[in-house]
Amino acid sequence: MSGLMPLFQREIKKWYKDPIFFFVGMLQPLFWIALFGSALDFSKFVPSGQSTFGVSQILDGAPNYITFVIAGVLTTTALFTGIFAGTNIIWDRRLGTLSRFLISPIRRSSIVFTKIFASIVRILVQAVILIAAALIIPNGLVFQNGFNVFDALVVIASITMIAFIFSSIFSLIAIRMTKMNSIFGIINLINLPLMFASYAMFSKSMMASWLGNIAQYNPVSWSAQAIRMVIVNGSLTASQMGTLGLYLLGLFVLTVILTIACIIASEKEIRE
């Protein structure tokens, strides 16, 4: 796709050339895991003497909340970072750089896809830091049933797809948008419902049943559950494999649909 590489390099260059943006982006997931992950100590919710068993029952088999929630934090990090793909399109429009891209012989979709790919790179780097931090902190992430190459690939694929999904959704929203306030209004409106109507932070057994039923259709849940299954369970049973396959298939189908939507919308609709 013509224009993809120079625009992608521009995005990455702008990222590492802005030390505040770069380091704040790195710190954000650390706060997530260190503060939010430690805020909920589930051992305090179950009777003494059977705390490990009780906690693990509430947390889908995870020995502590950080091991449970890391999958959700990885997914919501993708959600928050994906937002920037959209806001960056509006910035480029407001600062005039979008005009330069539009008068150049590049594919319009390159402009949108470089924002999405740059978001994915940022999210993957954040994910590595996040997992490392979760492993280091006391009472942190525990791979009680091991963690192999297949598990790592599932984690990378889920993060990449959910990052793609959110980055492309926010890019689609921003394709004709000129005002930053408008996109932030939309972000504020849909962020929390997307996060809390999902299994990212809480298991289905902890939720009101109506919310739990809605959450199963939320792609945030699919990504969080796919990552959680390999982190908590290690080697999966055949039936667990089937469930994992369904989550990944759901994410993949959405990724394909959004890829097509982004190509069509950006080629036809993007304006200065």
């Binding site: 224009g3 625009l7 260059k13 702008k14 600062l95 005009s99 891209f101 150049s104 590049i106």
Partner: peptide, 18 residues
């Protein structure tokens, strides 16, 4: 239309790659 976060020559080289 030039990106103010990039250097003058970086901008020109980016446009050249288009």
């Amino acid at each position: 239309t030039m990106d103010e976060d990039l250097r003058g020559i970086e901008n020109l080289l980016m446009v050249a790659r288009f």
